[in-house]
Amino acid sequence: MSAVIKTVTPFVIEEVLIEALLVVGAEPVKITPSNLQTVSHRGGLVVGDILTNRSDFYGPQHFRQNGDHWILRHDSSEMNGRVSSMLTGKHYSKVGRFLEEVGSAYESTYAKHLEKLAEQERIRLEEERKARVEATRQQAIAKAKSQGYSVKETTNSKGQIQLVLTRMV
């Protein structure tokens, strides 16, 4: 006998996983100390688990962090599989199909996440640059004044800061 299997996309970043679950309409809910007692699951839940709106014999199917990635905990036979959702048109699909959908949503959400990080990095570098220019400006003005120059500040045609320092000798 031979077999070909495909593993799911590794779900590594919690924020991306939650966003992906929202995209596929799985209505994720994070387990916190305050809601831990309000949800029952035969296998038990822990703070940090991420519930979905899918349930089976044991209770709500949920993601739990296992090392550096999140795994879906569910009844392997999917007995009594159902979706408890306020969303219309949500039907229970097999776990494999569900994970495929989440994986696909995770990949596109991850791409957006990378873009967001790049944008944040760009903003950080831009702020650093502005701070560097401002520090240079303030340092130059302070030093010039201490050496008896009068300082006139303008902006040139390129929008760059221009300091005109003059003193009589």
């Binding site: 240079t136 010039a144 120059y149 005109v164 003059t166 009589m168 000798v169």
Partner: peptide, 23 residues
Amino acid sequence: MPEQKITLTIDDDGAITAKTSGF
């Protein structure tokens, strides 16, 4: 009384170009 003048231009990266006159 002669005037000494320095024009500093601070570029977008914080580098300075300086031009002097009267020295």
